[in-house]
Design a protein around this nucleic acid. Structure first.
Lengths: 246, 246
DNA sequence: TAAGTTAGTTGCACAGTAGCACTAAGATAT
DNA sequence: ATATCTTAGTGCTACTGTGCAACTAACTTA
């Protein structure tokens, strides 16, 4: 490891070319009973790659302002979406010679879930034009900048997988919610209906939620409100939700 | 996104400071019925951080040789461990101002499982001094370079979690193996015994393996040999392995 | 032929869930 | 008041994969 005749390492100096380093965030929210992703429009300025195309919110790491990758991701979240995300996890990283015309680049991608109530009044902050897209809008040929389509697909896959055995959909809801509302979040993400009775026992016997002394009032029977017993740690179930005849 | 007065982006140029970019690999193998990790010794050359300490195999991305992050990880695997890993997944990335004295740095960490048969005859390749360590050897105060202790713990946690509901331990075995050998890999990683009968039905009914027309001969009853039905894709089970009274 | 060891099977109990029918509590219409 | 609608919430049964324990099978060595 001491002396490979190549650029990296221990040439006594650090004067070899460095890749560009960025952070991008895939931000999910459920609006109008659809899973949606926040995208921003690439600037049209000269020299900018993929001008005018939609891209994941993100950008270069700022070595002077960002303490760490996660801090950088939270900054992007604030700047682009104007929110503190109740759930943020690392999705992975994508890097290579050809993903950005400006040169070898690597992006660290995070994955956030936010309640639709937290969504800013559209196009806020200092972010460029921003908009929410349903997943169906990408089935066609609509391109995204860079390899962001691939990244977004990976994020959706990860979310769909985790929904089967974790409590992640709870982070798509406000602090207090009913069990029916929680069930609907699961159904929206999984894109299939689940059994009410089984779902309720599953959730209640797991200790995921605790009741608050309030009811959700509506046109019909009032529903018990709950909140997360431990908002910081998602619950992992020991069984997946069974898919019908599959 | 067009004009923040800060270093990154669209200052018309890309002349802002870039973090150091590296790739590290956590390589697991089971030897002597213990889960072990491959580490390399940091060089003693002047200017090198953490001289003489043990570290994860890895290093800087070489923008001229490495096509992508994963290609870079495979290169490190070849150079340091002298193997092609049958299983390689991304673990995550760690980055920040303070993790490397040479400046803001980010490392992309991969996670490999290899059969102990693939293990090189010790200290091979152009790698510096390398050695296998059992996990117990870190319970004490033995330090690792950089934040590699934290990274290694994360890798172990990820592996232990995934063992509960995937077929990952199969990649710690050679191409052909018996069910008892597979069970032993699970037990070594989980550090607890599991039921033979339940394990066999679980594995056999999942389609994970297919029998080959050979038997493992030994001092006792010969055992049926199997191989992975699909060596590329690990199997995901719908239930975790139940832990006794827990 | 008996004993030891590992491979592999069988049968039963248990737990979490799917499926479905039922009751409960509110609003609204008659 | 009473019926009807809608959503909340419960009870019951069946099924499936697993945990558990005892059993049989195949081979070696004494």
């Amino acid at each position: 490891m001491a002396k490979t005749g190549k650029p990296p390492a221990t040439q006594d100096k650090l004067d070899f070319p460095r890749p560009l380093t960025m952070v991008d965030v895939v931000i999910f929210a459920v609006m109008e009973s659809r899973l949606q992703v926040l995208l921003v429009k690439r600037p049209d300025a000269p020299g900018e790659p993929y001008p005018g195309l939609w891209a994941l919110p993100g950008g270069f790491v700022d070595v002077d302002r960002d303490e760490s990758l996660e801090a950088c991701a939270r900054r992007k979240l604030r700047e682009k979406a104007g929110v503190e995300a109740p759930y943020l996890e690392q999705l992975g990283s994508w890097g290579g010679v050809s993903r950005d015309p400006r040169g070898w680049s690597a992006t660290h991608v995070y994955f956030a879930l936010i309640p639709s109530e937290h969504v800013m009044p559209q196009k806020g902050a200092n972010a460029a034009e921003a908009a929410w897209f349903t997943l169906q809008e990408f089935d066609g040929r609509s391109r995204l900048a860079f390899d962001h389509m691939e990244i977004m697909q990976a994020a959706v896959t990860r979310l769909r997988n985790k929904v089967e055995y974790t409590s992640l959909p709870a982070y798509l809801l406000p602090e207090e919610f009913t069990l029916s509302e929680l069930q609907r979040m699961y159904e929206v993400v999984m894109e299939r209906p689940i059994e009410k009775s089984a779902f309720r026992t599953r959730v209640l016997s797991s200790g995921l939620v605790e009741p608050v002394r309030k009811m959700r009032e509506g046109p019909n029977r009032p529903a018990q409100l709950y909140r997360l017993a431990d908002p910081v740690h998602p619950v992992v179930f020991t069984r997946t939700i069974k898919t019908r005849t599959d």
